[in-house]
Amino acid sequence: MVKKIKNLKEFSLSNDRFEGANLMCPGCAHNIIVREVLNATDDPIIVATATGCLEVCTAVYPKTSWDVSWLHIGFENAAVAAATISAAYEVMKKKGKLPPATQKMVDEGREPKIVAFGGDGGTYDIGFQSLSGAFERGHNFMYVCLDNEVYANTGGQRSSSTPIGASTSTSPAGSVSYGEKMMKKSMVEIMSDHGAPYVAQVSPSKWKDLVKKVQKGFEVYGPVYINAQSACTTEWKHAPEDTIEVSDLGVESCVWPLYEIINERDEHGIIYSTKLNITYRPKKKIPVEEYLAAQPRFRHLFKPENRHIIDLWQKAVDARWEYLQKREEAGV
C-alpha cells in the first residue's frame, strides 16, 4: 500500500523502525538514508545488510537497532540473501503458510517489502557478483547502495566508487600523487542494463525525491536498484553538521544528478522500452569546485600542481550531465 506523504509534516507522523543509540558516527548520512527508506512505507519490511558501517554499528553485541526483521549477512551476499528471502516469501504465500500476522497484512494489501542495504565496497566491488546474479534472475526486492565512495568501516580504502583525486588510505595524496587515479564506476547504468524495471539515484538531502523513488520501487515487481549518495564525515573529513550541506552541493553541482531509469520488458525478457527521467534540475548549476572545497579529502587538489584534476572533474561532470539530458530528450 502506498503511504500518503504529501509533505514533510505528514512524513513526520512516521514511527521510526530504526533505533537510536546505534554506534554510527555523529552526522552519518547512512542513518538519514535508512530512516528515509524505512519511513517511506508502513508495510512490513525485511532487511538484509551487507557488512559495512551500517551492519557493524547497528548490531553490536548485545544490542540491535532494528525493529524490523533484520538479517546479518556477509560482505558479499546481501543481494542474494534478500533475493532468497523474496523467493521463500513467494513460496510460503503461494502455499498459504505465511504467519497469521503477515497474512493479515497481505490481505489488507500491505505486502512485505524486502530491502538489502550495502556499502559501495559491498556493492560496486565485493558483492557485485551476487547483486548481478539476483538482478539477472529477476527477484522481487530493492537494493539500496549507501555510497560513501570508500571502504569506511575498515579505515577508508578506495573502492571502484571512489572518484578521481580523492585521498584515501590506499590512494593517499602526497608529494608524488594527487590521490585516486580512476574515475568512478557508473553503477546506475550498469544495474539498469540488467533490465531492472526501476533504478534511480538519490540524495538524502532531497528527502521527497528519495521517498518518491523508493515508493515507486516498492510498487514495481522485480529487482530495484537505488544508488544513494552518503556523505561520510569521517572519510570525507567534513564537519558532522555539514552532512546535508555537502549532499546539497553534490546535487546542485550535478556531481550527483538525481534521475531514474524505467525499463519495460516483454514476456521473453526483451527490453522494449527504456526511459530516463532527470528528477531534479538545479536552477543554477554551481561549479564542481564548491563541492570539492567542502571536503578535505580533496583539499590537495587546490594546490597549483593538482589544479588540472579539478578541471578534469568539471569536464567529467559536464559530460555526464550532457549525456543524461540527451538520453532524457531522446526517451531512451
Binding site: 514533510l8 509534516k9 505528514e10 512524513f11 513526520s12 507522523l13 521510526d16 530504526f18 533505533e19 537510536g20 543509540a21 546505534n22 554510527m24 555523529p26 552526522g27 552519518c28 548520512a29 547512512h30 542513518n31 538519514i32 530512516r35 528515509e36 538524502p204 538531502s205 528527502w207 552532512t243 546535508i244
Partner: peptide, 18 residues
C-alpha cells in the same frame, strides 16, 4: 517545519502530531 526531524541521523528529534 520538521527539517530537523527528517535530517536527524539518530532519531533524536521528537515530533508528534506534526
Amino acid at each position: 517545519c520538521q527539517f530537523c526531524w527528517v535530517f536527524c541521523p539518530d532519531m533524536s528529534i521528537l515530533s508528534r502530531d506534526k
